[in-house]
Design a protein around this nucleic acid. Sequence first.
RNA 1: GCUCGUAUAGUGUAGUGGCCCAUCAUGAAGGACUCUCAUUCCUUCGACCCGGGUUCAAAUCCCGGUACGAGCACCA
Length: 491
Amino acid sequence: MEKRETKARREGLPELKNATKGKVVLRFAPNPNGPLSFGHSRGLIINAAYRDMYDGEFILRFDDTDTKVKPPMLEAYETIQEETAWLTGRQPDRVVYASDRIDIYYEHATRMLEENFGYVCRCTADEFKEYRISKSSCPCRTQSPQDNQILWKRMLDGKFKPGEAVVRVKTDMTLKNPALRDWPALRLQDTAKHPHPRPEIGSRYMVWPLLDFQSAVEDHLQGVTHIIRGKDLMDSTRKQTLLYEHFGWTYPETMYWGRVKVHEWGGFSTSQMRADIEAGQYNGWDDPRLPTLAGLRKRGIQAMALRQFWLELGITQKDISVPLATLYSHNVSVIDKTAPRLAFVRHPAAFQLVGDYPKELALPLHPNDATMGQRRWTLTNGEIWLESEDLDKMDLRLKEFANIALHDREARVESMERNDKRPIVHWLPTNNSKEAIITGTRDNTIFHIEGRLERHKHKVGTIVQLERVGYAVVIDESTLTLCHEDLTDDL
RNA sequence: GCUCGUAUAGUGUAGUGGCCCAUCAUGAAGGACUCUCAUUCCUUCGACCCGGGUUCAAAUCCCGGUACGAGCACCA
């Protein structure tokens, strides 16, 4: 009996090591060089989920310490906070801007030099690479703390140009892993030419910490207890652990996840997307073809679906490649029960109803939930629209209405009862419909389908189900975007 | 090249020596229900990378191989 418990399928995320309820501090630290992407959502969701699980704290930290290679985007600070709240269901417990804390990082760099576990290195990157490969020390390594202080001051005073000096952490040049040998902690950036986009920072600093240093110091200062991140940062952990030993600190518990690729999307980087958007290849960060949170959200992907998706994948270190279908299935399960039904007739063909039939009818807004109410249609002039694709059979059942037989442009009403197995099709009366366009994406292109859409009063952003077509989000009264593009058939 | 990591059905995932001829989801196929090609429900399909070793017993531990990924940036 007890053994069965232990072997039962684990639900949800695994326990955190060394975690005490109420004392867990987690963080997610994106570079605000653009809005959040699908990939970012994993870090946000997993870390926030552990915060909830342990009643701990979750920090959103902007690692905005590069002004040239991956310069921050001013609007992204705001966007990311908004997207974080949307995705995790609440505000982060703390928000930290690395660029606000440069002086604090300087203090730690100073201490590092004073206590002789760091040094100012004036070798070029290429020169140092040689030392790293040959496991030998560079000449700067043996400078006295006093000399390092002087050189450090000169760095701060702008006496060096970018590339001419860097502060390194002394580790051990004979370490097995070449990545760990005397790694760089702070470097110079030409902030006159590449100012930080935050006006309060601008060109104020020339010396900037690198990720491994900034992140390590900040995690300690914020009391982070658990770091969960991509396994590409495994060597970062090792570098930072070495630094923690120097400072006499204890490194947080760490967990890693592997690389995730989505079948339908190739490789996207924030910098590349930014360039493509600026070049006009995409309509903006919320272009439905882009793997951004904004794009997914605009297509009607729900935060809850993203949460279930990532929680189901868990945090294995395996590199995986997932189909969007998995995300969509989670989304369907979130949206279906509240999505009002609506008719959209693609490639519409007009017919005239002939015979006896009621001039009014009522259809359910949702077949499984009568409390959502009804939609009422009127057939004043008897003109109706059918999908061209449905016309290969002459005997059809108009959904919720009547059996008909088609002759030329006439639709003869044969019976109101459903008394045979003829195919049921969706349809629209002219009175209750108007021309509309739905858009979707496929193979990185946007397509449009013209047709007739049932008149509706749904608010912008409402997720509806177009019967026999798919789920879509309302853009305006005559435009819709498909949520799950690959659910459309024959275009 | 050096270093690190991962390998369970098509795709993901559970499983840390016996309960496993292996879990759950997704997918595909079929069916039930349904006046939607939706939802719900049922059935079926399908996997422990390879080779050694340890052990009474291995998906689970060890060694070797192979494959894939990542780091070795004055990017994050």
